[in-house]
Design a protein around this nucleic acid. Structure first.
Lengths: 157, 157
DNA sequence: CAGTATAGTTACATTGATTGTTGATTACAC
DNA sequence: GTGTAATCAACAATCAATGTAACTATACTG
């Protein structure tokens, strides 16, 4: 992701204003590989700026996403997750238990521009659902059974 | 998907009751390849049974899904889509414009049971986003531009 | 460096999909 | 047929996300 300074310039250059709340959101996202939700960013920001509104967070994240500076990722958890990694093409790993999300590079067999079953392909999104290392550790040998059973309801595709 | 008769037996065998509304939902799902949402099923059902409630539809679809008779599919549209095809392993094609969903068989490079980046894999879901044939036709040569621009907001992964 | 247009902020209301609650109704095993 | 547990319909509630409107602050301008 671009640095907070670069984002500040980019925002001003595109007629946007940079407020303390926005600058802080830029900083919080920098190098964050945990794919936080808007609520999570809001939680962190609220700790320092008691009066920020959730709306401000959604708005800033939305602008960053529409500018292509971050990615808004839908992995089937109820809420959108935000990913500062736009440099490398990648897919996502989702923990079925704790909902941790991690980037993973996979080769995708369907490329944009191709036509498959009559559909003109734009993009292909892959979500690999499994158990993260710490959830495996917490579950112990129950992990194999948990994965076999498909975990929670809603097969999510 | 199992036939309405088989489902009736299966429901009774598992202590569930089969009401006219449920039987009709079984029938509506039979061989439906359009991946209807709960609202869509409700819309169709309401045409014949004016007083059905949306809750009943959600409840019945939820039970069918938890019994493994249908799949509840999350392709990033706001609402869940339901898929009677549980026989063959497949992935999904989503039209970015009209939100039509179609099954597609793709080879997936990550198999359940494997460990990737420390994650114990349970399942891999692929959503190929593009333009369906009729939307391409409606857009004409604008189709290429539309797909290039990524269409609507929210890159959905 | 002050003035001001305009974007951003907050608090609050609203939407849309889905789920919870409850009292009335009904399927179905006996 | 009848009893009783499951299901139903109507309504309220939830959760993520967005819309509204009055107020505030940023960043050009002179």
């Amino acid at each position: 992701m671009k640095s907070p300074e670069e984002l500040t310039d980019l925002f001003r250059a595109t007629g946007r204003k940079v407020t303390p709340q926005r600058r802080r959101i830029f900083e919080l996202l920098q190098g964050d590989g945990t794919h936080p939700s808007a609520e999570e960013i809001y939680r962190r920001l609220s700790a320092e700026m008691a009066t920020v509104s959730l709306k401000t967070v959604y708005q800033t994240l939305g602008e960053l996403a529409s500018m292509g500076v971050i990615l808004s990722v839908d992995v089937g958890t109820r809420s959108m997750r935000f990913d500062p990694n736009v440099e490398t093409d990648h897919q996502h790993l989702l923990c079925a238990r704790c909902e941790a999300v991690r980037d993973v590079v996979l080769s995708v067999e369907v490329a944009p521009g191709e036509v498959i079953d009559g559909y003109l392909v734009m993009r292909t999104d892959v979500v690999v659902k499994g158990l993260c290392p710490s959830c495996q550790a917490e579950l112990g040998e129950a992990a194999a059974r948990w994965t076999a059973s498909g975990s929670a309801r809603s097969a999510a595709s």
